[in-house]
């Protein structure tokens, strides 16, 4: 199947520092790719380049074969790139339902409708409610987003991305800062998205057990370079990962 997302020689330099160094990689529908690597390896920067928060110094980003390197982040969003942010990024003083409704509304292209009450758009409201129910936030729809516990805020973040119905889902450490009992809920959400063969999922994650259980494929970034790419078991076992990521010298691995 043709890739839904591709990066070709994607590079960004900050002064003399090359944060992402000629990364060429293709992501296909129905595939969950975990991106791993030590802190500062350029994983989040790579995400920012793909979603358009940063502009590449070199190379290209393609969504379904279309070069989007020069497009802004909202333009890429409209082409089907969905992103959940590492730091929770919500509309804090709006209600949970309003947060999701705004995403639903954006997806429906209702940007400038100013002469109808929002309540008249029952279709948008129903869809937002359905998304909220699917992430288990239905009962909390009328709370302010800022009043939610951290785990629920992450779920809301995921709900907003799902409401955009993207072709490509990008999760940046979705379980970071979550309590132990909250983690499985979010992982379950991601696993359910994976069942939809038309979706491409990218996941930056530190927890190796999470990566093992979810990923179809792992790519490893170190110092901004793509150093390994393949089946989870093979990549985790490879010397380059053992050394670069897990900090175990080759030969000493258990």
């Amino acid at each position: 199947m043709s890739p839904s997302l591709e990066t070709r020689d994607l590079t960004i330099r900050f002064g003399g520092h090359v944060a992402v160094d000629h990364v060429t990689c293709a992501f296909r529908p129905g595939e969950l790719t975990a991106i791993v690597g030590p802190n500062g390896a350029g994983k989040t920067t790579y995400f920012n380049l793909i979603s358009g928060q940063l502009r590449a110094s070199d190379g290209a980003v393609l969504i379904e074969g279309e070069d989007v390197t020069r497009l802004s982040a909202p333009q890429r969003t409209r082409l089907g790139l969905g992103r959940a942010f590492q730091l929770t990024n919500l509309f804090p003083r709006l209600t949970v339902a309003e947060n999701v409704r705004l995403a639903v509304q954006a997806e429906a292209g209702v940007h400038y409708d100013m002469l109808r009450p929002w309540r008249a758009r029952g279709d948008l409201i129903d869809k937002a409610d359905a998304v909220l129910d699917s992430v288990g936030l239905g009962a909390k729809r009328d709370l302010q987003a800022a009043a939610l516990p951290h785990g629920d805020q992450r779920k809301l973040e995921v709900a907003m991305m799902m409401a955009l119905e993207p072709k490509v889902y990008m999760f940046d450490e979705p379980t970071a800062g979550m309590s132990v009992d909250e983690v499985p809920v979010v992982l379950d959400l991601i696993a359910r998205l994976k069942d939809d063969a038309s979706k491409t999922i990218l996941l930056v994650e530190h927890k190796m057990d999470v990566v093992r259980s979810l990923a179809d494929r792992i790519i490893v970034l170190t110092n901004g370079q793509l150093v390994a790419d393949g089946e989870p078991a093979a990549v985790i076992a490879s010397p380059v990962v053992q050394e670069a990521y897990l900090g175990i010298a080759p030969g000493k691995a258990a």
């Binding site: 990024n89 919500l90 509309f91 705004l102 100013m114 002469l115 929002w118």
Partner: peptide
């Protein structure tokens, strides 16, 4: 009517978090 329209909600979203509103595609 305008502030309570879908457009009005986007305005509030922009007030709350312009970065996020842009990321949603507005």
């Amino acid at each position: 009517r305008i502030v309570n329209s879908p457009f009005g909600r986007v305005l509030q979203a922009i007030r709350e978090n312009p970065f996020r509103a842009e990321a949603l595609g507005y």
